[in-house]
Simulated scan of single mutants.
Amino acid sequence: MTGSRPLIVTRPEPGNSATVERARAMGFDARAMPLFAARPLEWTAPPPADFDALLLTSASAARLAGPGLASLASLPVYAVGAATADAANATGLTVAMAGTADVQLLLDAMTSRNIRRILWLCGRDRTELGAGSAALTPLPCHAVDRIAPPDAWAGLIAAPAMLLAHSVRAAAYISELAGTARGHLALVAISPKVAAAAGDGWGAIAIAGQPDDAAMLAQAHALWHKVPK
């Protein structure tokens, strides 16, 4: 996309590099500007016999859980998204189902299989989930913390650019950092909730058709043709 405004990718690594690579393959002038960093937390694995299945909603849970994950290897894993399933497989876990990016659909599928005791290996900051008649036990094993923006951030947002917001927390932080520059910036949000967290005042804002990285980039491509160059 010759002459296009930069596409700023704010998600933490290693997802940031993956998104940048996909975006550049599509012709974007993609810039890696992670605003969060993931780190492991101390946790103790419960007896696997107390549960019917293990729910993973983020690849970070599998990557950062550490040696305690091995004690849960007897539990079938239900993973949100292909990247999470791949990360689980890489640790030696057995993935029974890899759902879409919609965790509620995956939970519904689990309960339809009569899975009643679910251990959710999750992040410290998480969205509350409803599991219907099943018992869902969250166990934080990692945290994703805000970090200071990279040095090039201020220069990039001083001119027209597009940004990707992959989570509610990311949208709120991007909005805070952008301040009054929002008027000449465009934002692509992964969901309506994320768009709402970004607030008003953007030069343009769009929502991905599906809650995943590919749909965000497709929406960014469509938005690029609409906003003034």
Results as ranks from 00 to 15, higher is better:
Thr180Phe: 14
Ala171Val: 09
Ala204Thr: 05
Gly66Phe: 01
Gly92Trp: 00
Arg113His: 07
Pro192Ser: 01
Ala189Ser: 09
Asp52Pro: 06
Leu156Pro: 09
Asp52Met: 05
Leu177Pro: 07
Val77Gln: 02
Val95His: 01
Leu121Glu: 01
Ala208Met: 02
Gly199Val: 09
Pro211Ala: 11
Ala98Asp: 06
Arg63Ser: 11
Pro67Leu: 08
Asp151Asn: 15
Met162Cys: 12
Leu72Asn: 03
Leu7Gly: 12
Pro140Arg: 01
Gly132Trp: 03
Asp212Glu: 07
Ala196Asp: 11
Ala96Gln: 00
Arg24Gln: 10
Trp120Glu: 05
Ala101His: 06
Thr84Pro: 00
Ser133Trp: 12
Ala79Gly: 08
Ser71Leu: 14
Val77Pro: 00
Pro140Gln: 04
Arg5Ala: 13
His184Ser: 12
Ala143Arg: 07
Pro192His: 06
Ala49Ile: 14
Gln210His: 11
Pro211Asn: 05
Val168Lys: 06
His142Arg: 10
Met1Trp: 12
Asp212Met: 14
Gly3Asn: 07
Ala70Asn: 10
Ala61Trp: 04
Ala214Tyr: 12
Leu136Glu: 05
Ser60Asn: 13
Gly130Gln: 10
Pro48Ala: 13
Ala197Gln: 04
Arg117Pro: 06
Asp125Leu: 15
His142Val: 04
Val188Glu: 12
Trp43Asn: 00
Leu136Ile: 03
Gly15Thr: 14
Ala90Asn: 01
Ser17Arg: 11
Met1Cys: 13
Ala79Trp: 05
Thr94Glu: 08
Arg182Gln: 08
Glu21Ile: 13
Cys141His: 02
Arg126Tyr: 10
Leu75Thr: 04
Arg182Met: 08
Pro47Asn: 13
Val80Met: 13
Leu177Gly: 11
Pro211His: 03
Ala165Val: 08
Gln210Glu: 11
Pro40Ser: 12
Ala154Ser: 15
Ala45Phe: 12
Ile115Tyr: 07
Leu156Met: 13
Ala79Pro: 00
Gly66Ser: 13
Arg146Asn: 06
Gly68Ala: 08
Ala65Arg: 00
Ala49Cys: 13
Ile174Ser: 13
Ala98Thr: 03
Thr127Val: 15
Ala65Met: 04
Ile157Lys: 04
Ala220Ile: 08
Ile190Val: 15
Gly92Val: 02
Met216Ala: 15
Trp224Asn: 15
Gly81Glu: 02
Thr57Trp: 03
Thr137Val: 08
Ala186His: 12
Leu106Gln: 00
Glu176Phe: 14
Trp224Phe: 14
Trp202Phe: 12
Met216Ser: 11
Thr111Ala: 11
Asp52Glu: 01
Ala53Met: 03
Met216Arg: 04
Pro160Lys: 02
Leu69His: 03
Asp145Arg: 05
Ala70Gly: 14
Asp151Arg: 12
Ala204Met: 09
Met162Tyr: 14
Pro46Gln: 07
Leu185Lys: 03
Pro192Glu: 00
Ala152Met: 11
